[in-house]
């Protein structure tokens, strides 16, 4: 091993245990002296490289890990809480919507209308002429071909969010109501219905469903017949 190679190897790693290098050093006192010199310098370097470490660094590192772990766990817990709260909120909203969106059936709403309108009726007692009724009936594609009786009120109202025409007639059996609805929306309602005060009947007339509602003891047939005869729906 030549001088230059020997020096390179010693410089690169003064503590090398490479047998070639050690053999070369043993064979040549100059090389041995060079090796000793560089190793001594290297020991100084090693000592100098060991700069003092800040006091309590190890404890600080362990402490920061514990805090990080605590924060991480708290974050996960927060996440779970948020998830649970979200689920609870969704369930609450859904069930409320479900309850709200199950309104009373069509015929029950018709009965309710009749109940409340009967209370207002005496104050605004006036007759509606046939043109006014026809104008409103036209939106259902129907018209009156003969008089239905004394129509006191003709109003659009919504039964189970279905738009209907509500006619209130003054008959010999007291006030009676006729509801005109699109047949496809109302044909699920029963043919006979009622409550403690009122009763009603449903029948289909071409494209429309008709509800006739009167007092519990009233006979609904005469008015039902008149409706069948008087209202014509275009095909």
């Amino acid at each position: 091993m030549d001088e230059l190679e020997f020096r390179r190897r010693i410089y690169a790693d003064p503590d090398t245990l490479d047998p070639e290098v050690i053999k070369a050093a043993e064979a040549d006192p100059d090389k041995q002296a060079f090796r000793d010199h560089i190793r001594q310098m290297n020991n100084e370097l090693k000592q100098a490289a060991k700069i003092p470490v800040p006091e309590g660094l190890a404890h600080k590192l362990i402490w920061q890990q514990a805090t990080d772990d605590f924060n991480a766990r708290r974050k996960t817990q927060r996440w779970y809480t948020a998830l649970a709260a979200s689920i609870a909120l969704v369930i609450g909203v859904m069930s409320t919507l479900w309850l709200v969106q199950r309104p009373p059936s069509l015929e029950t709403q018709a009965l309710a209308h009749v109940t409340h309108l009967n209370q207002e009726l005496p104050e605004n007692r006036y007759s509606v002429n046939i043109e006014q009724v026809n104008a409103k009936l036209a939106s259902f594609g129907g018209r009156l071909v003969s008089t239905l009786g004394n129509i006191q009120v003709a109003n659009f109202c919504h039964l189970q969010s279905v738009r209907s025409l509500h006619l209130i007639l003054d008959t010999e059996q007291g006030p009676m109501s006729v509801f005109i609805l699109p047949s496809e929306k109302a044909n699920q309602a029963p043919e006979q219905f009622g409550n403690n005060n009122f009763q009603g009947t449903r029948f289909d007339l071409q494209r429309a469903s008709i509800l006739v509602v009167g007092d519990k003891n009233a006979d609904l047939n005469p008015l039902s017949e008149r409706v069948r005869k008087s209202i014509r729906f275009s095909a």
């Binding site: 470490v53 660094l57 190890a58």
Partner: peptide, 10 residues
């Protein structure tokens, strides 16, 4: 931490 903190710091 105990084994390496000093040398890692250095």
């Amino acid at each position: 931490v105990h084994a390496f903190h000093a040398d890692i710091y250095r």
